[in-house]
Design a protein around this nucleic acid. Structure first.
Lengths: 233, 233
DNA sequence: TTTTTATTTTATCAACCGATAAATAACGCC
DNA sequence: GGCGTTATTTATCGGTTGATAAAATAAAAA
């Protein structure tokens, strides 16, 4: 064992962080820990990886649950404050380019083992923050994509997205998402480059969107609005 | 409390099952339990839901882990012995119809809260049986779909699926899968009928497949075989 | 250096976990 | 019915969990 390193000799680092910085360091490392072990991981093992003793955690967090909540908050808010919303609405560029750039940026944030695992763990718990996040994806991302696609294909953009449109966007988005799961959670070998996969997925989605629009143009809007009716009651 | 009901009076049910049947009943109920609580659920709570005491479990299973393994086996093998393979290869019917019927049948099996949750729980654990299952989906289902699509579009069917083809099929399949997650795990409201979603997803996939085939026909096979090269080393 | 304050550790608690042994209850058979 | 066998329960073990109080240490202030 080393000596105590009390004042001057051999003191290389470890200045002593501000309480808030130290707290954030704990949250950061706890995120890594819980992403691997799940939220049933013990506080003793977590403390060991932090290089401290277990009761110290309770100086910075009133309970394990509070620490876990802070991990959630950090993980779920991380992908949302990257200002990608303008990226989708820039109509000076074709929709395909915008989608390519957006999904490249978005997946650069969420396609990590850490993020995906915490997302799935909390999803299995049925947490409110998970439902909130999924709602944000639908209302901010998918709804925007649908509107921009309509514009690209010369369709009216005011009306709310139909159930079919949302569901098709979800299938596309979920398909892309599932690539991350296969790669970073299942760790499947021999997987295609992310960029190629995204390009293929986008082309497939746009082809499907064009096809569906053409079909809907023949017989006007009906049937696919079962959802709005249900939501209006 | 009731009386003991030893021989004849007021005996309505509860005949006493054979050891194997009782064991299977335990496995069945344990599947429900672990699907909700996760595999960290306690044996005492499980026994309570079974209406028995906790040590009794150890008469039927040597350890909790063995019980859990049997739950895995049952859940993972369930969707595979439904003989849907012939369904995909019946070339007297158009591929769209076959895909519709297959995915209707397949999702009828896996789109339950129970199945999806156990699948995700075990996936997060990185279990071998999970990786095995994902490999089966790729090699038996997706590869077959690709081959049948090639046939439908008048392309040669012998060559192994390219990386792009597999990845596109995965995005499609994962998109459908993610519908189940949204519905039965996230429990999102106002969701489209499963059949409509599947039909839309299939049409989108086929449109994308046609588009990709047309593009590949211009410049011959190259680039998209990076995977085979990687697998051959 | 001495005093004060903030940080970290040691020791410990009650509750819960998976698992085992021994005692009891229920059944099938004669 | 009584007897032997199987199924089930009661009681209990050692280990681990999240959490608390008090002692000890390190840093900062004087």
């Amino acid at each position: 064992m080393k000596k105590k390193s009390s004042s001057s000799v051999a003191r290389v680092k470890q200045k002593r962080l501000s309480p808030e910085d130290r707290r954030q360091e704990f949250v950061r490392k706890a995120t890594e820990f819980f992403s691997e072990e799940g939220f049933n991981g013990g506080t003793r093992e977590l403390a060991r990886r932090l290089g401290v003793t277990q009761p110290l955690l309770y100086r910075y967090f009133p309970s394990k649950e509070e620490l876990v909540k802070e991990v959630y908050r950090k993980v779920y808010l991380e992908p949302l404050d990257t200002g990608w919303e303008k990226l989708l609405t820039n109509r000076s560029r074709p929709i395909r380019e915008r989608l390519l750039q957006f999904y490249d940026a978005y997946t650069n944030v969420i396609f990590t083992r850490k993020w995906l695992r915490i997302y799935l763990f909390s999803g299995l718990k049925g947490l409110d923050i998970n439902r909130w996040y999924v709602g944000v994806v639908r209302d901010k991302i998918l709804t925007r994509i649908i509107k921009e696609c309509r514009f690209e294909f010369g369709l009216p953009t005011q009306a709310k997205p139909t159930a079919s449109e949302i569901e098709m966007a979800w299938v596309f988005h979920g398909g892309v998402f599932y690539y991350g799961v296969r790669r970073y959670i299942y760790e499947m070998p021999d997987i295609q480059d992310k960029e190629e996969m995204i390009a293929n997925a986008i082309d497939g989605y746009l082809a499907g969107f064009a096809r569906a629009s053409a079909k809907d143009a023949k017989r006007p809007a009906a049937k696919s609005n079962r959802l709005n009716a249900a939501a209006a009651r």
